[in-house]
Design a protein around this nucleic acid. Structure first.
Length: 600
RNA sequence: GCGGGUGUAGUUCAAUGGUAGAACACGAGCUUCCCAAGCUUGAUACGUCAGUUCGAUUCUGAUCACCCGCUCCA
């Protein structure tokens, strides 16, 4: 899926343009910067705001079935315990001292054998090292193989033709994770690697006061699911969306703003009926096929149709802001990529200059998240479905027993699969717990209650802004009036996302009538759209400046406007299009409508 | 976190152990009837901190940041 480009001078051009034109600055630049943090300048702030507003409009304002939420960044730490972030975001990591390869310290295979500990090495030309190093040799292998690895280690550190010191006697060790299974070289001490930013709430700053900056916005939606459900008169299926900052202490922020430590997410959790409920109410669940109509949701849609629907919706959104099929790609996660709770996940990828990388993930997460919170907080996170209750009330004992049996088999299989992943068999307790869960699940189901399943389109706003910038970036060579070829840079933003919509220029600035008229037009347009007034330099230069800023239209007040070229042209202006230089004469009275039509 | 590379005006690049220069961009003025024209003029830089030195942007070290590769990445 990823196709790395060797060097990316294009990316450098884009980042220097972003700085030059006030799109993106390094955070805290005057103090030398801070890795993984970026600021948006005046143009970038407008661009981002446009993208944010367009997403919000498409996701909630234009829909009946999605509501907005604006939750805090710091939440109860138990949320991150329930979501799994506390455990999986704080992996201890260890590096191989020889190859620098990194391991999850708790995932290194257990090994036994003889450990040889070396105290250093001396070599030719007075080179030496006093760094301690150890090698594990599997049972039966000679000491020489340890010496070989150690020699390599010391020679890497500049000891020429190293003679290894110490390690005459091996020491028997069992079940250690301290050595690289591939070459026996010693690993560094495990270091905790918590990707969540930690802080303290309240004045005492003890371990009891630890809180985290959210590493994703999604959990707030799950945590407020019940409140939204209870106060909004919505029925499943419906969604809750949110835009906001999230924080991850990334090991390596890279590719400009693509992987940052502070970033903005736009997430939707769309809650749907479990397939069992759809089947009970509608008789069957719609099957997805290539020819399926995804335009209007239907009652008999199960998770798969909903998942496909959201992929189509999101694709249409990208299309609407100028990111078409030519710059997008899709990656359907399978098997091992897929998180254990996910049923399916599609990444929508954008062809960045540095490779094709994820813009948005659309996951079918089952009922994992709400179930986790239900378990941890002890409060039901269920939806009571009248239709389901009515549908199952007619079921006889045999049908119910059959349902419970199917559910039980499913829960048992899940428990076994989880155990298999940890390379062991499921215990009797685990299987009994699975059966109990299946019975409870079924019992709730027969009363019309279930924990909704969820489809999660999760997009990165900063990534989207970067993608839009990359897609818009365009250089063309053009000869000027003297025939000198000059390279012009144009940001071909879709008018919807362009930070500045229109530039207003008097043709000449030393003609007060032109300037006065231009100020008038500017004042007229300013309340309706972001405009920019410019009277300095030649008109061509002003056009070029706006091209580089991605402004789609330029309005020039000229002598025709003043009626000097005949009364029929009085009070008309020249409107110039950024992408092809085409000029139109538009009456000032019709200018607002003309522009708004093209910006919509 | 590891390995390699790079840090000089806003940008792209020079030069230099002793006063740092250009192009473009930017500001002001003049000029200019449609695509970076011209003239005058102005402001702006050695990432940071140490060390060596009479003197460091230059040499050394550390640090910070960026880029590439690993690693990581719900």
């Amino acid at each position: 899926m990823s196709q790395p480009v060797k060097e990316s001078p294009l990316m450098e051009k884009i980042s220097s343009l972003c700085k030059r034109r006030g799109f993106i600055f390094q955070s805290s630049e005057i103090y030398g910067g801070i890795a993984g943090f970026w600021d948006y300048g005046p143009m970038g702030a407008e661009l981002k705001r446009n993208l944010r507003d367009l997403w919000w409009r498409a996701m909630t304002r234009e829909r009946e079935d999605v509501l907005g939420l604006d939750a805090t960044i710091i939440m109860h730490p138990a949320i991150w315990k329930a979501s799994g972030h506390v455990d999986t975001f704080s992996d201890p990591m260890a590096d191989c001292l020889l190859t620098q390869k990194r391991f999850r310290a708790d995932h290194v295979d257990l090994q036994s054998g003889m450990v040889f500990r070396f105290t250093g090495a001396s070599g030719d030309e007075g080179t030496a090292s006093a760094v301690a190093f150890a090698v594990l040799v599997p049972p039966g292998k000679p000491r020489e193989s340890a010496l070989k690895v150690a020699k390599q280690f010391y020679e890497q550190r500049g000891v020429k033709n190293a003679v290894v010191l110490g390690g005459e006697q091996g020491e028997k060790v069992e079940n250690t994770r301290g050595f690289n299974p591939e070459n026996g070289a010693q690993l560094t001490e495990p270091r905790p690697f918590n990707l969540m930013f930690k802080t303290y709430v309240g004045p005492t700053a003890t371990e009891a006061d630890v809180a985290y900056l959210r590493p994703e916005t999604a959990q707030a939606i799950f945590a407020q699911f019940k409140n939204v459900l209870d106060t909004s008169r919505q029925k499943v299926p419906f969604g809750i969306c949110q835009i906001g900052k999230a924080f991850r202490n990334e090991v390596t922020p890279k590719n400009y703003t693509f992987r940052s430590r502070e970033f903005e997410q736009m997430e939707l959790e769309f809650f749907i009926k479990p397939d069992e409920a759809v089947a009970a109410v509608c008789g069957s669940v719609a099957e997805w096929s290539e020819s399926a109509d995804l335009s209007v949701p239907a009652d008999n849609w199960g998770w798969e149709m909903w998942h496909r629907y959201w992929v189509a919706q999101r694709t249409a959104f990208y299309q609407s802001i100028g990111l078409g099929a030519d710059v997008l790609d899709y990656y359907w996660q399978t098997g091992d990529d897929l998180a254990h709770y996910a049923r399916a996940c599609v990444d929508i990828l954008f062809k960045f200059p540095f490779g094709t990388e994820e813009l948005e993930g659309i996951a079918a997460r089952g009922d994992f998240d709400l179930t986790q919170h239900q378990t941890h907080c002890g409060k039901p996170q269920e939806f009571f479905d009248e239709e389901l209750k009515a549908a199952v009330s007619g079921w006889d004992e045999a049908k119910r027993a059959e349902f419970v049996a199917v559910k039980t088999a499913e829960f048992r299989a899940k428990a076994e699969a989880a155990a298999a992943k940890a390379k062991r068999a499921a215990t009797a307790e685990e299987l009994a717990a699975a059966v109990a869960r299946a019975e409870h699940w079924s019992a709730r189901f027969f009363t019309g209650n279930y924990v909704p399943h969820v489809i999660e389109p999760s997009a990165g706003l900063d990534r989207l802004a970067l993608a839009v910038l990359c897609a818009a970036f365009c250089e063309e060579d053009k000869a000027d009036v003297n025939g000198k070829v000059e390279r012009r840079t144009v940001l071909r933003f879709h008018p919807r996302v362009a930070p500045v919509k229109v530039g207003v220029f008097p043709l000449l600035k030393n003609r007060p009538e032109l300037v006065a008229k231009a100020r008038e037009v500017y004042a007229m347009l300013k309340p309706l759209m972001n405009c920019f007034y410019d009277e300095t330099a030649a008109i061509g230069r002003r056009y070029a400046r706006q091209d580089e800023a991605g402004t789609p239209f330029g309005v020039t007040i000229d002598f025709e406007t003043l009626g000097e070229k005949g009364p029929e042209l009085a009070d008309t202006v020249t409107v110039r299009e950024r992408d092809n230089g085409a000029q139109h004469r538009v009456k000032i009275a019709e200018l607002k409508g003309w522009l708004l039509e093209r910006l919509a």
